[in-house]
Simulated assay, not measured.
Amino acid sequence: MDQSFRKIISQEITKLDLLLKAFINDINQGPETKEKLRDLNNQAYDVSEHIKLRIEDLEGIIENTPTLKKDINILKEQYSKNINNLRSANLKAQLNFDVLTRSALFNKDIHEKQNDFLKKRKQAKKEELISNSIKLTTGLKDVTKFIAQTVKHSEDNLNLLTKSSSKIYSTNEELHSMDTNIIQSRKLLKKYDRRHLTDKLLIVLALIFFFSAVLYIISKRVSLFGILGFRKKAINN
């Protein structure tokens, strides 16, 4: 009877040992959350307590059988080893959670710094856009003022050109009138030159006629004196 009961307890301890190792392995794999780790630890703790109780039950059965105490010691060593592995797995899992927490905090800090940098950059860009808009508006005002001054200057130049054109037109009219007067004066001068030439010709012809008449008269008198002298000589002879 004791032997059959001992065999049943040993089998149960073996199954519980495998189950405990499975929980330890799950913890070593790294649970996704602390709640999952807590749940695995609770189940592993329950199994380890059952193993401990079953070892105590088995130890009570074989208390009067010294030759089987060696098997009890092996089970106790295996139990202690599983407990140590469970603690190591929990420590490893806790370290992983610490790393993840620190990494999350670091990433959060980086994310916050990035957001702060982006906000500052956006604000600086906004301020730069506002400054550029003000500069552009000022520049447009200056350009508008310059265009207005240019238009006024152009209007003044146009008025000056209009006045100059009027003066030029008036001067042109005066020049045209002077040209007409010059042409008429030239015609009168030509007419006067022709008349002066005619007068000169008439004077020359009058002088020629006068000198011809004088020569004619002189020649007549010379001829007359010659005839008279000849007659006088003839009378004297």
Rank of each mutant, 00 (worst) to 15 (best):
Q123E: 12
T150E: 07
L105A: 03
S133V: 15
F106P: 01
K135P: 08
N115I: 02
F117E: 07
L118I: 11
A104W: 00
K141E: 12
A124C: 05
Q114P: 01
D142R: 07
V151H: 06
H111F: 01
T138C: 06
K113T: 09
A124V: 15
K125F: 11
D98F: 03
L105T: 09
K125M: 10
E127K: 13
T138H: 09
E128L: 15
A104K: 01
K141V: 13
S133T: 03
D116C: 03
H153A: 14
D116Q: 03
K119C: 02
Q114R: 05
G139N: 13
I110P: 00
N107I: 00
Q149C: 06
I147N: 15
Q149S: 11
K108A: 10
R102H: 07
Q114H: 07
D142K: 15
A148E: 07
L100C: 00
V151P: 10
I134N: 13
N115Y: 02
K119R: 09
D109L: 02
D98C: 01
K135A: 15
E112R: 03
V143R: 11
R102D: 05
T101I: 10
D142F: 11
S131R: 15
K135F: 13
K135H: 15
L140G: 02
E127P: 06
H153Q: 07
F117P: 03
K152C: 03
I130Q: 14
K126G: 13
D142N: 12
R102W: 01
S131C: 10
G139T: 11
T144P: 00
S133W: 06
N132T: 04
V151N: 14
Q114K: 03
E127A: 11
K141Y: 08
S133D: 14
F117R: 05
K141P: 05
V99G: 00
Q149N: 11
L118E: 13
Q114L: 12
I130G: 10
K145W: 04
K152W: 05
K145N: 05
E127S: 12
K125E: 04
K120S: 10
R102C: 02
V151W: 05
F146T: 14
K120N: 11
I110H: 02
H111L: 01
V99P: 00
L118G: 04
T150C: 08
V143T: 09
F146S: 14
T138N: 15
L136D: 14
V99N: 06
